[in-house]
Design a protein around this nucleic acid. Structure first.
Lengths: 143, 143
DNA sequence: CGATATTTGATATACCCGATAACAATTATT
DNA sequence: AATAATTGTTATCGGGTATATCAAATATCG
């Protein structure tokens, strides 16, 4: 084994490695539904924010509009969501979850909560898990 | 603004966004030296582990050997490190920091400590920063 | 010893993400 | 009415990551 040296004290380094592990576990837990973290986040956002268009959804997720097109194509081809032409502004597409999209999202939420997040809480402890979440949110916002 | 919903409670989501922010700040702070986080980690590891070959360094950083070749080419072309044929095993390349590599690493360490990590500690508070580091390391290892 | 398997660095290649430029259609501005 | 801005889209580029394969060198084992 090698000496990590100052690397173990580098927050960015541990952050990246932890992120990879967590995403890996997410994929494992949600594998039955074939959803990536990004796809899951889109479905969640569509559910909580009906009537929004592609630009709005993409922006809040930090996805660039051009890159969001193919992502939506994939979800729409699986009948998880649909683009509807807006009557107010005929440029934009209102995004809606399909019935199937809502069903898949509901199952995904359960898998995430019962398998993925549950394991995280088990490893970290509930208090640490909450503290970690708070610090990460702080970094994501204020930093 | 949109409703994030359960997204704010998803550890992986905050983890990813925090990681992007932290790497962004790292790049800003080390910009004078033109070093990416990955390049910095390689230099650090070479310094702390002299006499190792490409496979060993790449493995500990989670970099695949094929992808490590171009990375080393870039560092070597800037005269930051060098490949030396091993006398024991003429297949492998012993990696060494050049004098210039050591000098750049020293300057990089200062920038990282005084600008990058200092800002992190300032935002989080020293105690939280340490706790965060510990939890991330735990996730990176045990998870 | 000699044949076979393994390891090391390297090349080629492919895929996924993220970023930019440009475009047609539509709407906003002036 | 003319011009500017917005929306979704396409094309394209670069970076990071993954696999298969190769020649050279070494290790293993009959």
């Amino acid at each position: 084994m090698l000496q990590l040296g100052e690397l173990s004290g580098l927050l960015g380094y541990s952050l990246k490695r932890a992120q990879l592990k967590v995403f890996e576990d997410f994929l494992r837990c949600v594998a039955p539904l074939q959803l990536t973290p990004a796809q899951f986040s889109v479905l969640l956002l569509l559910d909580k924010n009906p009537g929004r268009n592609q630009t709005e959804i993409a922006n809040t997720l930090g996805i660039l509009r051009p890159n969001f097109v193919a992502m939506l194509d994939a979800l729409e081809s699986r009948d998880l969501c649909a683009r509807m032409r807006s009557t107010n502004d005929r440029r934009s597409h209102i995004l809606v979850l399909t019935d199937r999209g809502r069903a898949v999202l509901a199952r995904a939420k359960k898998l995430v909560a019962n398998k993925h997040e549950a394991r995280l809480i088990e490893v970290l402890g509930p208090a640490n898990h909450a503290a970690l979440l708070e610090m990460l949110a702080k970094l994501a916002q204020e930093f």
